[in-house]
Design a protein around this nucleic acid. Sequence first.
DNA 1: CTGTTAGCGCTTTCAA
DNA 2: TTGAAAGCGCTAACAG
Lengths: 340, 340
Amino acid sequence: MAVTIKDIAKKCKVSITTVSRTINGVTEGVGEETRNRVLKAIKDTGYRPNSIARSMITKKTYTVALVIPDICNPFWAELARGVGDACASGGYHLFLCNTDGSSKEEREQVQFLRESRVDGIIFTTQNEEEDNADIKQFIREKYPVVLVERYIKDFKPPLLVTINNRGGIKKLVDYLICRGHKKIAYIGGPKLAANAAMRLEGYREGLAANGIQYKAPLVSAGDYKLGSGYEATVGFLRSQKDNFTAIIAANDLMAIGACGAISDAGLSVPRDISVAGFDNLPLSAMIRPHITSMGVSIHQLGKMAAELLLERLSGVMEERHIFMECALSERNSVRGIKNG
Amino acid sequence: MAVTIKDIAKKCKVSITTVSRTINGVTEGVGEETRNRVLKAIKDTGYRPNSIARSMITKKTYTVALVIPDICNPFWAELARGVGDACASGGYHLFLCNTDGSSKEEREQVQFLRESRVDGIIFTTQNEEEDNADIKQFIREKYPVVLVERYIKDFKPPLLVTINNRGGIKKLVDYLICRGHKKIAYIGGPKLAANAAMRLEGYREGLAANGIQYKAPLVSAGDYKLGSGYEATVGFLRSQKDNFTAIIAANDLMAIGACGAISDAGLSVPRDISVAGFDNLPLSAMIRPHITSMGVSIHQLGKMAAELLLERLSGVMEERHIFMECALSERNSVRGIKNG
DNA sequence: CTGTTAGCGCTTTCAA
DNA sequence: TTGAAAGCGCTAACAG
């Protein structure tokens, strides 16, 4: 059996209150000598206060939950690290929950909050299955929740971190056009994902701003996974062979898939076709070719989300919406051309 | 304030004992009619039992902690997913802790166990800083801990999952030799890592078994990170140009780095130089070239570790050592040659 | 400066 | 079939 506050009290012949005070660093109300005796007993026995018991009274667990689709996806891993770092700095611990996009797991975590196991939750990504009724309800009840890149129709959550998707992709289009490309294919995200819609908008807007006509055959919908980028590119290569000189993928994973397809077709990136991605995964700078990508610091994204949550948990009740701007990381998957 | 068991009891005009029984599915001792009334009240109020209070009595949290160096490393992410999946299946929740290899964070988690916030811990990787005194002590005290790929000198933990590093690399050497390679360079892991030593042993053993002499200049020590694979390869290319036709990297990340260096030198994998890795990361099958790699299923590795822990938590006290065998995933970073 | 007392929300004997 | 009461390990008034 683990040693408890009672054991220490008995050992030192003081009350548990005195021990409690010592543990909690309450110097006032404990004599120097007593205090040292208690401290020594704690050290000798290896006593650790039972934080479950403590939580029961304080209603604080110093624990938060992060809900993501899949930690194996480098984007979520990076985000999780940012969240984890911020939590650690703030003295919080982190629950990890992989949902694979299912809302069942999300509900699980929400229960966790109700069961007072966590002080707050960070939800990421759009759940495509339903209308987020649970989360909406939950936020209305003032539970500490922060949403990351999650857009709920007709509902503005008090704590939200988002990326400028539309603006980011638009800047990427501008960039490609500056580099001489005029025929730019686009591999989008899942039809139901809100941020995919925004990215697509950015693409259209970018073309329009440069007086280039939008062409449906040059747009394909992927699922943000590598394979779909590959497939889409195979499709472009088959049916649109000479109608594009560059591909923008709505995320880096699909851009990597696109590069694979191009390479498998015996062509070269960027010599034959340029490819640009979105998200700016650290991975994109590691592989060949290094993928030129638009994005925010994902680690920072996670960090900010966690900081927002911790602030809220420390009592700050203000609404906050952090809107992160994208920056270009120019690498070598895009080349300049003369005649698009 | 959240609704408690008391509220339900009051609402139904029964004792909290009756409510408790209903919550816990104890049918004996609760009348059909009473039971339904309670169930209805629970549903109406959205009551969730406070699991902190429950844990205090039962001494169970249904929570385990996973301690890894860095979730951003795809190896650990994959492992974490395996652990997470097994935990979810068993009704457990998962704490994630990134240590960056520092033992401070590890100690943190151990405290967590002492504070009865988690029921058990999975520790991964060798801590290179010290002698694992804390963990050893902890295991001796019979705390539920499972070690993954962690080798502690003169100490056999009761619950352990390891990879056949030596045998795996040896098989990889055999494979390359079968494919005609005789001059095989090797990029090892960190000098202090126990599994790096085993992998190096496998390399030497593989050469010896095939009557090939070990040559120190063809061996370089990396740190399991991509950059070190790159650097090592640059070194080989500079000073050992014609002395090798293939490179074995002690992990896939370094193999990817090696491919990058080769490509940057204007050479091609596998045409000019073959590269093989270890770990068999899913990532290795996604990039170009697809990296031929030896390894175990990382997801499975994590799953087994978690299952071992959950078994232990369910009362099984047997010692278990799972020794996972490696398998080759033949892809296209290695080519057969006639004259090594 | 120190201790007594009353819970936190729940489970678990033990009686009724 | 039910409930009263004790207590998990701790904090937090409130006394002394």
